[in-house]
Design a protein around this nucleic acid. Structure first.
Length: 255
DNA sequence: AAGTGGGTCAACCGCTGGAGT
DNA sequence: CACTCCAGCGGTTGACCCACT
């Protein structure tokens, strides 16, 4: 079977992300969520493939990402889990709040592996590490994956009281809608419609210039309260402010 | 000051399983 | 059942930084 390429490579940027690209991606995902990574860059005004956007968000821009050096406890956890799970970095990262699989993997290869060079892991000894040799064995079981999902910080976003907006009514000519949009829309129809009407009243060409109209008034506000390297969204009344709420709060700030 | 080698880490690539049609 | 699309995963690469010569 011939698979379609993940993206049309022509005209797309590669390599290091610029602060401007980061702002665009963060602004868009914060406001609308990641309804379809493949279509997202088009609407966010980014010349990147969706895969690249997803990776950037997951590994760098996502709220609650913990950066900086690893604590002794974290390193011990990585070592212990690698010993039992092998190279299942996403599963290992799921046990380390704020750490990404990419970061854990890098830390293992650059630091921890050397320390334990001469100590073959239990997983390797009992064959679990074969996962790195046979791609088919690399994945966890569906149950493991489910547990991993529940532990993932993404779960916080999914269960946000205000799920990402999907503005299908405005998209008849551009069709970014994914199939599950409709269902996610139903419980937020009123909220969505109200916001949309208010927003469209301000910006008649919003959907033809999805980002440009947004960035003019949004990041002038957001960037002043969200440090570029912010490792989490601000707290409101002792609770994490979800991205959508966060945006709304920022709009209400007298900056 | 210039060259170089090693370490780190962001990003890319190719592949997979799951869901939808 | 076959096919397609998509998100997610792990392996790998390459740019960058810094210490050292």
């Amino acid at each position: 079977m011939v698979r379609t390429p993940c993206c049309d490579k022509t005209g797309l940027r590669k390599g290091t992300w610029t602060p401007e690209e980061d702002r665009k991606l963060m602004a868009y995902v914060t406001r609308y969520g990641c309804w379809n990574w493949r279509q997202l860059p088009k609407f966010a005004g980014l010349a990147r493939c969706g895969k690249s956007c997803r990776l950037r968000w997951m590994n760098y821009l996502r709220p609650n990402i913990k950066r900086g050096s690893y604590s002794k406890e974290e390193e011990e956890t990585i070592i212990r889990l690698h010993d039992s799970l092998g190279n299942r970095w996403s599963a290992i990262a799921a046990q380390l709040p704020g750490r990404t699989d990419n970061e854990v993997k890098n830390h293992w290869h650059t630091t921890l592996k050397k320390r334990f060079k001469h100590k073959p892991s239990a997983a390797a000894k009992d064959g679990k590490d074969n996962s790195s040799q046979d791609p088919k064995l690399r994945r966890g079981t569906s149950r493991e994956k489910e547990e991993t999902k529940l532990n993932d910080v993404d779960h916080l976003l999914i269960s946000s009281p205000n799920p990402p907006l999907i503005l299908e009514s405005s998209l008849s000519s551009q069709q970014p809608a994914s199939s599950d949009q409709n269902s996610s829309n139903t419980n937020t129809d009123i909220h969505t419609d109200t916001l949309l009407e208010a927003y469209e009243a301000e910006s008649s060409n919003f959907w033809t210039e999805p980002f440009l109209s947004d960035i003019n008034y949004m990041w002038s506000d957001v960037s002043s309260v969200v440090p570029y390297e912010a490792d989490q969204f601000p707290l409101l009344d002792g609770e994490i402010l979800y991205p959508f709420d966060f945006y709304d709060q920022v709009q209400g700030l007298d900056l």
